[in-house]
Nucleic acid binder design. Structure first.
Lengths: 197, 197
DNA sequence: CAATCTATCTAACAGTTGTTAGATTTTGTG
DNA sequence: CACAAAATCTAACAACTGTTAGATAGATTG
């Protein structure tokens, strides 16, 4: 019979924050439960009052990161009907996200594949939403004649995901001098290349 | 007194290939020496006849991956004086590279940060060459008036590295339907956005 | 054949891993 | 203050980690 573990509490949040921070720094397999505990000034065994397992912690951190990314995509979609407003708003939201929850995003990007097969499956289901969001953006852009000739919405989505991942990489791996300006230019490249002229 | 270990031999190559494959699949820390040995039909201890340590194996795999990437960049640079010829040739070389040495590139991209501090330093020195290659490409493009207005060579480099990383990601994480066509469109986006119009 | 070299195996080491059960402390409530 | 609940600590577990020394087999050479 497994013990019940509260789904949410301030303390639990602090523990997940610590886990995200150490996972981001040393990688999932490179991190010991004792590393997480140390950062909180407690002992490893005590973590299991709040967490079911190390794997469960990773899944939860990844899921939180994914949900953040989805929220950024939704903000982008809601920013207006035009492609460029949407992409700019989305990228901007993603960068704000990095400032606030960089560890979660970094772990989600880098350690996702360390999840167990079933956990990975669960994450993929959630990530559908992110993909659908982007597909809607680029499908509508095509209908409005805003997409460059010869560019398929699907390829545009792949490229945009790459841009988001690149911004994330630059931010967490940084420091990149004058990051906001670099980010703006990267997005400009994408938009100038993806939009009809 | 440390044992001497041959710098290169067919057997050693096979062992590094196996290490690269398992590192790519399960991550560095997620991989045990026994996993590498299993894949070769041998026992873990025997690896130390060819390898100094697990860390040394990772460093060597990463270095090989980096050198491949540099070769691709050089091929791109040599493909002609124009920006678009160079970028297209470089991306094409990178994709060919993925087909031949995908594991090495994947490990280099994903597990680089698991290297020890000194090993990381050594890699950074090598990677300078890759950066310089790209900087020369974009600096010359600017001089030739081929770079979009408002786009700095440095930002262009960051964006291009992101494109290469994106292609790598799509390839190793795949399968992506009709990958060559998707890759072409991603590169087109970059070129249309980065070139002066 | 004898001797040497190359490659592998065996067996074990010391340290670390995630995790657990039970005792103990801290916190909140009547 | 007494009691209960929540949170943490202690101490240990079995399994696994990278690594090593020494024995063993196979190939090469004199």
């Amino acid at each position: 019979m497994p013990e019940e573990i509260a789904v949410s509490s301030p303390r639990r949040q602090a523990i997940l924050d610590a886990a995200a921070a150490v996972f981001a720094e040393k990688g999932f397999h490179g991190t010991g439960m004792r590393d997480i505990a140390d950062r909180l000034g407690m002992k490893a065994g005590s973590l299991y009052f709040h967490l079911a397992s190390k794997d469960a912690a990773l899944e939860e951190v990844c899921a939180a990161g994914m949900h953040s990314a989805i929220r950024a995509a939704e903000q982008g979609f809601a920013a207006g009907p035009g492609l460029s407003e949407r992409i700019r708003a989305m990228a901007e939201a993603q960068v704000e996200l990095l400032a606030a929850h960089g560890d979660y995003i970094s772990v989600f990007v880098h350690e996702r594949r360390q999840l167990s097969e079933p956990a990975q499956q669960r994450l993929v289901e959630v990530s559908q939403k992110h993909r659908q969001m982007l597909d809607r953006i680029f499908d509508e852009a095509r209908e409005r004649g805003e997409l460059a000739v010869g560019l398929s919405p699907r390829s545009a989505r792949y490229a945009m995901v790459g841009v988001l991942r690149n911004l994330t990489q630059l931010y967490v791996e940084g420091p990149v001098r004058d990051f906001p300006e670099v980010a703006r230019q990267i997005i400009d490249i994408f938009l100038d290349g993806a939009q009809a002229r």
